[in-house]
């Protein structure tokens, strides 16, 4: 393998996740995959693919249609020495497993005085845009990020999908990975072999002077598209990929807010009481406040379930034109 092929190799986001699991299964016998239809079916979004044929049903396990039961088995497996990766078919079904995630996985290390830890990885296909309607399109990452004891990440590129999944496996505590369904087919460069993307670090995807856009999940790509269009207006936007919801990369966000003085946060999850509110408050409470030259602006999901009608589905979450016009107003001091 020479350096040139390494640099140009592209994988899809789903392939990058599969490669991460393949590497993990290969290098660590404690790693097991669990989830509904992840075996011969290959997973609801074909992320596990044919791994069952390579590693067998002892390591790639189909679980019954009970998220609570499956999650309970995964927590128990993690407690007793395995490194389970549990896949939900849709992140919406996390609601069924809340007891295991919130009351068991997140708290056992604390309640047992540090005698145990729960090295559990859970994968959640999330987000709208697939026409899957109200019960299969939500963005619930802020729910889990509200719980001390959990780590929550949202990879937005194939490279980070692999790197964050491998970092999650190295973590002694439960890590929740929210994967946007629309991103599964997105291609991008992915380094070969084992590497990790540090949990708790944001990535500055585009540097700029005039305003900061902190985006998460698929909104990173929409924000970048809006930022490219803004160039024509002479607006130079900095785009930060949040990447890790908990812990949050305070230094990167505050540093950028100090630099540009104008902050906008974009996420797909419902705006009210969301991650944007947390980031906004974090900046307003910090010394970066003195550098703000505009109110902080949040864009997020509408106050409604995700509609089935495709036009309404689009209207329920931020889109490029909305990001563009809000960012223009913000950068020009019109907000």
């Amino acid at each position: 393998m020479n350096a040139v092929t390494e640099a140009v190799r592209e994988l899809s986001y789903a392939e990058a996740l599969r490669e991460a699991m393949d590497i993990a299964l290969d290098r660590d016998p404690r790693v097991v995959l669990m989830g509904e239809d992840i075996g011969v079916y290959g997973g609801a979004f074909q992320v596990t693919g044919d791994l069952v044929h390579k590693y067998g049903t002892d390591r790639v396990m189909d679980t019954p249609i009970s998220e609570l039961g499956g999650a309970g088995v995964a927590v128990g497996a993690a407690l007793t020495g395995l490194r389970p990766i549990f896949e939900f078919q849709f992140s919406d079904f996390a609601t069924l497993a809340m007891e295991q995630i919130v009351n068991q996985a997140a708290k056992l290390r604390y309640m047992l005085g540090g005698a145990v830890s729960v090295p559990l990885v859970m994968r959640f296909p999330a987000g709208s845009g697939t026409g899957a309607a109200a019960q299969h399109s939500q963005s619930l990452e802020a729910w889990l990020a509200h719980v001390p004891g959990l780590k929550v990440v949202q990879p937005t590129t194939p490279e980070d999908a692999k790197g964050l999944l491998l970092a999650a496996l190295d973590d002694p505590d439960p890590v929740m990975i929210f994967e946007h369904k629309i991103l599964y087919k997105m291609k991008g460069p992915v380094p070969e072999g084992h590497y990790t993307t540090p949990i708790g670090t944001a990535a500055i995807r585009r540097t700029g002077r005039d305003l900061t856009i902190v985006a998460s999940g698929i909104m990173v790509h929409k924000a970048l598209e809006a930022a490219r269009e803004m160039e024509a207006d002479g607006i130079d936007a900095e785009v930060i990929d949040l990447r890790s919801v908990r812990p949050i990369d305070r230094d990167t966000i505050l540093g950028s807010a100090r630099k540009t003085g104008r902050l906008m946060i974009v996420h797909e999850a419902v705006k009210t009481l969301g991650i944007g509110a947390e980031i906004s408050a974090m900046v307003a409470e910090s010394d970066a406040f003195d550098y703000l030259d505009s109110p902080i602006i949040r864009l997020g999901g509408a106050e409604c379930p995700i509609p089935y009608n495709p036009e309404l589905e689009k209207a329920a979450v931020p889109q490029v034109p909305g990001i563009l016009s809000a960012a223009r107003d913000l950068a020009k001091g019109r907000v």
């Binding site: 003085g261 003195d290 001091g333």
Partner: peptide, 24 residues
């Protein structure tokens, strides 16, 4: 006035009351 304007005015010893702001 925005926080940034206040901070800068404070540093420069400028009284904000006398300034016609260009913002909303």
């Amino acid at each position: 006035a925005t926080p940034a304007a206040r901070a800068r005015a404070r540093d420069a010893g400028i009284d904000l009351a006398g300034i016609a702001g260009s913002g909303p």
